[in-house]
Design a protein around this nucleic acid. Structure first.
Length: 588
RNA sequence: CGGGGUGUAGCUUAGCCUGGUAGAGCGCCUGGUUUGGGACCAGGAGGUCGUAGGUUCGAAUCCUAUCGCCCCGACCA
């Protein structure tokens, strides 16, 4: 048991000026964290207790799902990252350092990075240690600090530059086994979030180059979330980056040409909207929108309906390591016109050979014959037929889904809501094992690449997500399993030896039943103690007051209820133990 | 990185527009009265007004630069 007067729970009456959302304010007000700098937080004693509980729950479920815990360095030699597949894409968010600060004296300074995640460490380790199919599958995990130099940290622990994450890495002999590992982890995640006492739904997530449906994010529904979840009543749920709809029928017939291409002057018209108004009157959904990107140094084109938005993440499926929108200066020499008059009609592209490809969204088939830029400033072309006229390399899904479109599984209207990503599971395949040479020998003496998966749970972010999902006007309402303490004994008259003895006796009874107990023995007025008790959100409160003692009772109150039960001194020990046992049972 | 905002005591802030002795509430310390939902009274400590320049007789206030923080966007392995 802990005594509040000797512990450290610095609660605040007022919200800090730099916190905007409820969970961030409560984190600080309840004395769980303090800020050092943007995205950098100290876990105060109470916050650390919550983190430790989350960590232990996570450890138990990941182990039950096949994980083996280890601990890797957070300082990584840069060579590991240079050898890996995503150095170019990841380096921007990595903290970089050298071995000795300034290190001016030496010509060659070893260089290090702080680990944002550990594929580049675990894969070489496994390559070194595992060479036989007999040692597979293996799934290693750690629960440790991660460093990411986020461009914009947000909302306290929600997106921090240093944070705590569980990261697991599975190694399997083949694809089938890797899928098995993947779903074992998915089920471990579901059990973990259930035990935490938080509603987290698995949604399909962007898989980048892998394709298929082998990435899921675990989302906590919340308005302040960073991600949009697209879902339908039928159970379909996907991150907007990944979501599709049944807007375009699967076997839509290609439209026949309606006539010869006609060029027409559109002076000053450089937007979809402008072309949609008089005198042109070409509706957005009859225009071809031509976007130019630079992928790994080469320009490429994406064609969408004028009325659609590009979902940039979906470009990831094209296989470029890094990509970005092209600038007007980069576009003109390739297409021959400035943005606003661009098109992908065969023969109009000034330097078609420079292009890495022309990728078209399926939805342009709905246009059939439409209008697009002429690659000549101030001119557009009409009667452009998708099949006959456009220089398409490949069709794909690149558009951003809109709410109301039919669900790809059930046809019901899609809906959207915000979510906080608290976990992500990913079937990696052989992307890393290839780079690092992680191979094993099978029972036929054949060498094969190991098939990998990687899995993450944001532990510190989950702490805040719990608060975001479970609080009221007075403070936090901790679910039993992650509460920093289960029972708060509110000692209104700490100077009374009888009251103190009773508090200790009840604390012992609750502890014996399996609860963590804190006794508020501060020399504060009752109002202060009650306010603080609600603020820090301990599930069970026992109030020992001199009035009650005269009547021979103490009071029992649950944080998530308004009811106050008066229990006689004769019964209280037993009742308290019984309630603790019941709460433990409910929380599993 | 673009846009916006902001920086005054441990915390929340007023003052800035219109330059002239830096103010309040909370918290803290001392004493007293209180004691079941953030008590009251009296006294007290605590601020180079983010930093550096500049303008001025005089700068928290005006100007410039710079740094930090917050929000929106972009970005997000």
């Amino acid at each position: 048991m802990k005594f509040w007067s000797q512990y450290f729970v610095p609660t605040l009456k007022e919200s800090p000026a730099d916190a905007e959302i409820a969970s961030h304010k409560l984190l600080v007000r309840a004395g769980l964290v303090r800020k050092l700098g943007g995205g950098l937080y100290t876990y105060m004693p109470l916050g650390l207790r919550v983190m430790q509980k989350l960590t232990q729950l996570c450890r138990e479920e990941i182990e039950a799902g096949g994980g083996i815990e280890l601990w890797m360095p957070h300082v990584h030699p840069v060579e590991n990252w240079e050898q890996g597949p995503r150095w170019a894409a990841a380096r921007e968010i990595m903290f970089r350092t050298d071995s000795a600060g300034a290190g001016k004296g030496r010509s060659k300074e070893p260089e290090f990075v702080l680990g944002p995640t550990h594929e580049e460490v675990i894969t070489p380790l496994v390559k070194q240690e595992i060479t036989s199919y007999r040692d597979l599958p293996k799934n290693f995990f750690q629960i440790a600090t991660k460093f990411r130099n986020e461009i914009r940290p947000r909302f306290g622990l929600m997106r921090a530059r240093e944070f705590v994450m569980m990261d697991a890495y599975s190694f399997d002999a083949n694809d089938e086994a890797a899928v098995k590992s993947y779903f074992a982890m998915k089920s471990a995640y579901e059990k973990f979030f259930k035990r935490v006492g938080i509603q987290a739904i698995a949604v399909e997530a962007d898989t980048g180059v892998m394709g298929g449906s082998f990435s899921h994010e675990f989302m906590v529904p919340a308005e302040i979330g960073d991600d949009d979840v697209i879902y339908s009543e039928s159970g379909y749920a996907a991150n907007r980056e990944k979501a599709t709809s049944a807007l375009v029928p699967k076997n839509i017939a290609d439209a026949a040409p309606v006539g010869a291409i006609e060029e027409f002057a559109t002076p000053g018209v450089v937007t979809i909207a402008a072309l949609a108004t008089a005198p042109y009157n070409v509706p957005g959904d009859q225009q071809f929108k031509t976007l130019v990107y630079i992928g790994d140094g080469k320009p490429f084109i994406v064609i969408l309906r004028g009325s659609d938005e590009l979902e940039e993440a979906k470009i990831g499926s094209l296989g470029f390591t890094v990509f970005r929108p092209a600038t007007a200066e980069e576009i003109e020499p390739v297409l021959g016109a400035k943005p606003g008059s661009l098109g992908a009609v065969k023969g109009t592209i000034k330097n078609a050979d420079a292009l890495a490809g022309v990728f078209a969204d399926h939805a342009i088939r709905l246009i059939g014959n439409g209008t697009t830029g002429a690659n000549k400033d101030g001119f557009h072309l009409r009667n452009i037929n998708v099949v006959r006229d456009l220089a398409i390399t490949k069709f794909g899904d690149f558009r951003r889904v809109r709410p109301g479109e039919p669900c790809p599984q059930s046809g019901q209207p899609l809906q959207v809501r915000r979510g906080i990503e608290v976990g992500h599971i990913f079937k990696l395949g052989t992307k890393y094992s290839e780079k690092f040479g992680a191979v094993y020998t099978d029972d036929q003496k054949q060498s094969h690449l190991m098939v990998m998966g990687c899995f993450g749970i944001g532990i510190s972010r989950t702490m805040q997500a719990v608060i975001e999902q479970s609080h009221d006007a007075d403070g936090i309402v901790w679910p039993w399993n992650v509460a920093p303490f289960h029972v708060l004994i509110c000692l209104l008259d700490p100077d009374s030896a009888d009251a103190m003895n009773l508090a200790k006796k009840l604390a012992t009874a609750a502890e014996t039943a399996g609860a963590d107990v804190i006794i508020d023995d501060r020399a504060e007025r009752p109002g202060v103690k009650f306010k603080d008790a609600d603020l820090i959100g301990i599930p069970l409160r026992v109030t020992i007051g001199s009035k009650g003692l005269k009547e021979g009772i103490v009071e029992l109150k649950a944080r998530n209820s308004k009811d106050v039960a008066k229990i006689s001194l004769a019964e209280i020990e037993q009742r308290l133990a019984a309630i603790v046992n019941e709460e433990k049972r409910k929380a599993t």
